[in-house]
């Protein structure tokens, strides 16, 4: 479905991946500004692990090292893992997650272009099931300096001083407030009161978080302008999440947070432009993309509101990844000159 003129130079995987990394930078800058430079350590760790794992598997499989190592796809996976993990996670958590993503989720399925599941999300889901406490080590914005953060990342695993400097993410805080509402004798908690009294909450969806999300939004729009991604996936994802959370909060404002909270909280923006848009594991037909992204948004919202895990994006993406072959098959566009249904005769 490309526009004329049809003389096109195929974009290399490398240039696509490099531009995806560039587009992550605005969000990353906001991230560093609010949560400190620990994220840089995590990104370096994840990147080095990803490259080493990629090189090892490529060597074992007898594939050309230089070609695949420099295509940047492993780096994008590594960055997405680092950005979706809490910055104070111990170093081995990120290393283990990256190894899983590259070796298990990517190469055991056949390598670049063959993996049915988004590698970064496989790693995230595995780690949040295995280490729920470590995956909630989010610092209070601006609370600790870099030296302390370094000490936490490379320090012993059980660190009790952590409780003082970490806090619940906005999504977590909301869940805890709402779910404990029935058990506590205090005044009934509503979304409004839970958010109003929480130090984690900023203007839209959480101090710091909303600006990081805005950074991802800027980067994502640039990717769209560069035609790395089409409008279908992000728009369908964000619109569905907006409509669902908007509808729920209009009907029952006491128990459901509004659309801006959902769009700018958690990993929604990162997911919209960088995760559901994974060209390998997402649906590929225009109509299929809309269905896929809307499905991810629906599942994300359901898991956020009714599930046991703070953010449901990883699970939602993986569940929809399973459905991709079916979606793609059902939404094949009509080839010009052929009938929509029926046999292959034009």
């Amino acid at each position: 479905m490309s526009n004329s003129p049809y003389l096109l130079k195929a974009t290399s995987v490398q240039s696509v991946m490099l531009r995806v990394l560039l587009a992550l930078l605005p969000g990353l800058v906001a991230y560093i500004w609010f949560f400190g430079a620990a994220i840089v350590v995590q990104i370096v760790l994840a990147s080095l692990t990803a490259l080493a794992a990629e090189a090892l598997v490529l060597y074992l499989r007898g594939k050309p090292l230089a070609l695949f190592l420099t295509d940047g796809s492993a780096l994008v996976t590594a960055w997405l893992i680092a950005l979706s993990f809490p910055p104070l996670a111990p170093w081995w958590l990120v290393v283990l997650a990256t190894l899983t993503a590259i070796i298990v989720a990517k190469h055991l399925y056949g390598g670049l272009g063959q993996n049915p599941f988004n590698p970064a999300m496989v790693a995230f889901a595995l780690m949040i099931v295995a280490y729920p406490q470590l995956m909630s080590r989010w610092p209070v914005p601006g609370a600790v300096d870099f030296a302390t953060q370094w000490g936490i990342i490379f320090g012993p695993y059980a660190n009790h001083a952590l409780d003082a400097i970490t806090m619940a993410t906005p999504l977590d805080a909301l869940r805890t407030a709402l779910h404990s509402a029935g058990t506590l004798p205090s005044a009934p908690t509503t979304v409004v009161s839970a958010l109003a009294n929480n130090p984690a909450i900023g203007h839209l969806a959480g101090r710091g978080w909303e600006w990081i999300a805005a950074g991802y939004l800027v980067g994502g729009l640039w990717l769209m302008q560069q035609r790395i991604i089409t409008w279908h996936l992000p728009t369908a994802f964000l619109a569905t999440l907006f409509l669902l959370s908007g509808l729920a909060s209009v009907i029952n404002p006491a128990d459901f947070a509004g659309p801006l909270f959902h769009l700018f909280g958690g990993g929604a923006m990162l997911a919209a432009f960088f995760i559901v848009t994974d060209p390998v594991s997402a649906a590929t037909t225009p109509c299929g993309k809309l269905i896929f992204a809307a499905g991810v948004a629906l599942l994300t919202w359901i898991i956020r509101c009714f599930g046991a895990y703070p953010d449901g994006i990883a699970f939602a993406v993986l569940l929809m990844n399973i459905a991709v072959p079916l979606i793609d098959m059902a939404t094949q566009p009509r080839v010009f000159g052929y009938k929509k249904t029926g046999d292959d005769v034009p």
């Binding site: 595995l126 099931v129 295995a130 280490y131 470590l134 012993p156 695993y157 059980a158």
Partner: peptide, 11 residues
Amino acid sequence: ADYPGFLIMML
């Protein structure tokens, strides 16, 4: 003794 375990293997 301070090995954090790997819960997914037990599931």
